[in-house]
Design a protein around this nucleic acid. Structure first.
Lengths: 193, 193
DNA sequence: GTCTATATTGGGATAGAC
DNA sequence: GTCTATCCCAATATAGAC
């Protein structure tokens, strides 16, 4: 791998592990096996390198989600596939965790890919819920936007619970709770309001 | 307020705003209007001060939750009250955000109050769901532990969405999505499995 | 209890040689 | 392109005077 590549990949990992504030240029260089001058030759500085790393992580997340959501089965099954997909639960979401980074949130350029990715994810899920509703798989009363927000929040919050308890079980519990409620939101459900 | 008090309160605010990694002793001192020596006279160092701050924040959260959850109305209403309680949404959860702090998670002493608080919160909600189920307010099939995990995850993840988009609306959307599903999980709901 | 002085390491970067 | 030297300031303390 080229030096710029190694620098970006190292930044991605450190950003995931320690966040933006907790990641120093020196740590990146050491992880990448690159010298000081080398890093500053290829990138303007820490924010520039972080931007490249965040963009790539965001792209990768979209591809992964598209893979798991791309089928044409029933809406419930696609949402289920998304929720149950393999994850490195204890590491958390490499995009979502950046929202807790004050210096990322304060910088419009760094923040943009985070905003866009989570917006995209929610809208993608909302489309699937809407489809399911139109096909009569979900109750007509199920709000696609709100339900999609709930799905994304469950995942993001599941990471918080898992990291707090030190176990993926907490993530799993929340996801199972959501799936049970979604399963009960079929078109036959007359109590849904 | 005494100097130790001001130091603890300042640490609480900075921890909430910038996290543990992003909070320096110097910043705390300036925020508290205390000198270097003064801080090290009252506290052993950054971890010691952070522990005092985290413990107090955790206690405060428990009291707040107890206040809103303490009534004796229907289970749904109590959960609703919890979900709709006033929050500083864009600041996020002062306890939950610490799970994204690598130095907190790596230190058992700092991490303990975080683990305990989120465990306690989930168990408290599980108890309410269980009560509601026993009273016939919720479907018998509703799993208390999983549902409680879902509720906590929705809130924690709602903060992520809100901070990503820069608006509390995203938090609200997820919560509304959850409330709609919970409302449909009454005892009459025969589709719940 | 609080202050100032001092110390070590790291953060984040620029300059210029090779 | 990469390396080393250098810079300045912040992070996180300790020591000892007041």
């Amino acid at each position: 791998m080229s030096t710029p590549e190694r620098l970006i990949e190292s930044t991605r990992e450190l950003l995931w592990e320690r966040g933006y504030v907790g990641t120093s240029p020196k740590a990146i260089q050491q992880h990448a096996g690159a010298g000081q001058g080398s890093m500053y030759h290829h990138f303007a500085g820490k924010p520039d390198l972080a931007l490249a790393a965040i963009r790539r992580t965001a792209e990768e997340l979209r591809r992964t989600v598209d893979d798991v959501l791309g089928g044409d089965g029933p809406a419930y099954a696609r949402v289920e596939a998304y929720l149950l997909r393999e994850r490195d639960v204890l590491r958390g979401c490499p995009v979502g965790r950046l929202t807790m980074d004050p210096d990322v949130i304060a910088d419009d350029t760094l923040r943009a890919p985070v905003t866009e990715t989570l917006d995209w994810l929610r809208d993608r899920l909302a489309g699937i819920v809407r489809e399911g509703r139109e096909r009569g798989e979900f109750a007509a009363s199920l709000d696609p936007h709100r339900t999609a927000s709930l799905i994304v929040a469950t995942v993001q919050g599941g990471y918080v619970l898992a990291r707090a308890s030190g176990s993926p079980a907490a993530f799993e519990a929340g996801v199972r709770g959501l799936l049970a409620l979604l399963a009960s939101a079929g078109p036959d459900d007359t109590t849904t309001q």
